[in-house]
Design a protein around this nucleic acid. Sequence first.
DNA 1: CTCGACTCCTGTTAGC
DNA 2: TGCTAACAGGAGTCGA
Length: 263
Amino acid sequence: MPEGVEIEFYRRSAEVALDRPISEIEANDEWFLKSGTTAEALTDALIDERFTEAGRIGKLLILDVSNGARLGLRFGMTGRLIVDGEASIDYLEYSSQRNDPAWDRFVVHFADGGVMRLRDPRRLGGVVLDPDESALGVDAFVVTPSQLRNRVLVGTVALKARLLDQSRVAGIGNLIADETLWRAGLDPARAAGSLSRPESERLVRHLRKVLADFLADGGSHTGRLQDSRHRGGQCPKDGVELLRRQIGGRTTFSCPRHQPASG
DNA sequence: CTCGACTCCTGTTAGC
DNA sequence: TGCTAACAGGAGTCGA
């Protein structure tokens, strides 16, 4: 599904859409417009303007508009960005592999004939004009070890739940969290504030490596744990059956042998 | 403020 | 073969 890694791919593909006059938009799905955003407001903000910069905080793609407005795009778990017919990624875990224009929830037409589409079968994404960026924590790609210790590795909440809390650190989704904790040998259910200094440093190191690997390999579904994330799946390291639990409301796989509860 | 539970969405898939 | 129910998870809301 789209996590910070996929949104980074979307951001890069959105750079193709910069500096091109916008001639028309399609924002007919009212459900898809969030936080009071309306089709009228989007029309006012975008028509005859241009995108000037493509940014990203966590899973939020932010397109700066030439009049000072900012367009926030969210992709839920099945959203893709398609610019000029080119999808920036060719595989998306949990999404349909079909290519159905009926799933276009928001479309921007450029005067040169090009088109940018937000295609989201399950409609869990959204479009926000001038999104509240203060609600997001530091982006996972640039978070420092001390920021992670101060903002994430505190309290009694399950470690994985904290990693998924976008207001603490932004961009980590379920697959990045499971892969990182699996590589770091940390139990996802441990209290977030219970990590020793060496453990927290191990977590930071593996988070950075996982993000780099996923970027290099094409997405958050390319982890070494991925093929085993199913009922009865075995740990690729130890060969023992993985634990399957709900942590932070998400299906969580971990290895009882090298991610033991005792830490 | 914190935190778990609940809800939304719908294509896919497992199972009868 | 055909149907139904479970499943997936990002994000917002609500209540304790």
